[in-house]
């Protein structure tokens, strides 16, 4: 279960303080898919960052599978993230100095998985995501769709409980985006992974178990 209680977040800039999230609360059952929709600047990415512990809300509390992530020390939060979370960003997901295989294996090494397990898992993911031919490729040698599939493989390699995806299809063409969404949905269902996606994509919205409409940092519909 993911629970957010009265989350607020503001940013200071040259033009003053900007309230990005105001009193956001919601709950999400394990294994469900939540989509957050809203215009650009409505606070979608900030919610994802707060849920993943990449940013700390000014007030409120986030409970991730029984853990209040904001109360954790930095080191414990990192260890929580590496074990329980997977991220996909809009673009530029992969570590550019590592090959596709090295990128996918990275979270498995962080989680101290055995070499045998890593190899088996890598082979399986390369098969599922149709990346076998690109295992040794560098990120800049991949197309947008291949790069997002590789990023997805890395995000789910360590079987996280929560997958956070920030507009994962935004930089892809319609068909490639659709393929990725189907894949994400299928794998999420199979592994009972809780998925939170910020998106404008109708296909994702149609797959969602829960939808949150965000306007100027406030929930305007569920």
């Amino acid at each position: 279960m993911i629970e957010a209680f009265n989350i607020s977040k503001s940013f200071s800039s040259g033009s003053g303080v900007r309230q990005v999230l105001s009193d956001i609360s919601f709950k999400l059952e394990k294994g469900k898919l939540l989509t957050i929709i809203g215009k650009s600047g409505s606070g979608k990415t900030t919610i994802l960052n707060c849920l993943g512990g990449l940013d700390i809300p000014d007030s409120g509390r986030i409970n991730c599978f029984g853990t209040d992530i904001n109360s954790l020390s930095e080191k414990k939060r990192c260890l929580f993230q590496r074990k329980n979370l997977g991220f996909i960003f809009q673009s530029g997901n992969l570590l550019s100095y590592l090959t596709v295989s090295e990128n996918i294996v990275f979270p498995l090494v962080l989680n101290n998985e055995t070499k045998k397990f890593r190899e088996k898992r890598l082979e399986s993911l390369l098969e599922i995501l149709e990346l076998k031919l690109f295992a040794s490729a560098m990120p800049h040698e991949l197309s947008g769709g291949q790069a997002q599939r590789a990023a997805f493989a890395r995000a789910i390699a360590h079987s996280p409980q929560l997958l956070l995806a920030d507009e994962p299809t935004a930089s892809l063409d319609t068909q490639t985006g659709l393929d990725l969404i189907k894949l994400m949905h299928r794998v999420g269902r199979e592994n009972r992974t809780t998925i939170v996606v910020s998106t404008h994509d109708r296909e994702i919205i149609q797959c969602a178990d829960k939808i949150i409409h965000l306007t100027d940092g406030k929930i305007t519909g569920e």
Binding site: L54, L95, L110
Partner: peptide, 17 residues
């Protein structure tokens, strides 16, 4: 110039140490 790499790693749970 490579800060995105470190940012991605931090998001993956790489500790400051």
């Amino acid at each position: 110039s490579n800060i995105r790499e470190y940012g991605i790693m931090k998001a993956m749970g790489v500790t400051p140490k």
